[in-house]
Design a protein around this nucleic acid. Sequence first.
DNA 1: GTCTATAAATCGATAGAC
DNA 2: GTCTATCGATTTATAGAC
Lengths: 206, 206
Amino acid sequence: MSPRSEEANIQIKDDRQKQILCSALKVFIHKGFAAAKMSDIATEAGISYGLMYHYFQSKEEIYAELVKGAIEASKQALEKAQKEETEPIDKIRALIVRIFASVGQHESAGYYFVLMMGAMTSGAYPALSMEGPQGPGRPFEMLVRIIEDGQRKGQIMQGSPAELATTFFSAILGLASLKVSGTIASMPDPGVLMRIFQPASQAKTK
Amino acid sequence: MSPRSEEANIQIKDDRQKQILCSALKVFIHKGFAAAKMSDIATEAGISYGLMYHYFQSKEEIYAELVKGAIEASKQALEKAQKEETEPIDKIRALIVRIFASVGQHESAGYYFVLMMGAMTSGAYPALSMEGPQGPGRPFEMLVRIIEDGQRKGQIMQGSPAELATTFFSAILGLASLKVSGTIASMPDPGVLMRIFQPASQAKTK
DNA sequence: GTCTATAAATCGATAGAC
DNA sequence: GTCTATCGATTTATAGAC
């Protein structure tokens, strides 16, 4: 037991966990949860098979940890957008630009969205649901609130805010899926997606 | 060997295959390819486990057959839209309405789209690719051609037709995924998606 | 054509040496 | 902390009876 071994071990432990999570994200996305083998993740991370179970209890725990991170990241992104002192429509524009840029540049950003899509459709994560009992901390509802603000100010077309939000989310998730799989080479112009929100009156009066 | 046994057997064989394919589609969508067990499909179809292998050689063959059907169905839907003697923008509108209606009403229609999404991202089916060497029979390119027509006639916003098509496809695939998983209860208003194509000049001059 | 039983292979999780 | 070896459970695919 050398003097600094405790701190160093904590550091190693933290690094290894991040390393495993990062590798697992790649593997989960490219193969899906069921097809992803623990040996795949171990190989990707460059460690032995058995060591995986020193840091995580099961494959599901790794997946759950990743989803937790994805939910947290999207919450923070939406909170950041909401706090900016700009018009609602500009908050949405900034959000799209930021998302497209991160997905276009960093593989892992796109992975996070695809992971969320999978977690959403599995129905195992209440924080990602769009229907049912509402909870103020859900990313979906945070977007709905921004849309409602924009409608009150006449910047966004009238109609169900939930419908607009789901269509928006669907396009983002779909685009991210196609991007990380290499089906499309780059993300489209943010303006294309902005049109979903555009009120007819805005184009008329301009 | 009774007189009509041959015809009857052919009929039985055809029915069973369709029955298995239909059950497999449900199971694949809800669990993913890897997690879908042959026993799940057999139970869903109401037949024994072993009988599956009398009609299909492997799980992959069943999946490939389903993807083949999905590609064929989308080709036909796009050909139907293209043949109608209406304006390009109306062809797209009719396409969206038809897709939303079928996905909203019949589970299997939504399944087909989700299946296509999975097949697309796996990269194993060239007919579903959006990049790379072009082939005139691909559903994606058929949509691009309709968009180009619409742009020439000023009905659709200017810009990369491929970008518009990918955004459109992404939203459809994303919405279908969320719909079949029960994440959203119903498809949104087709008009929301139509806005992606709307040229600024159209709203202005009206 | 249809079923049950079994073979063969795979994978998640654990045990124990270093 | 890290690795190798192994168990146990599950699953695909096949064999053979009816």
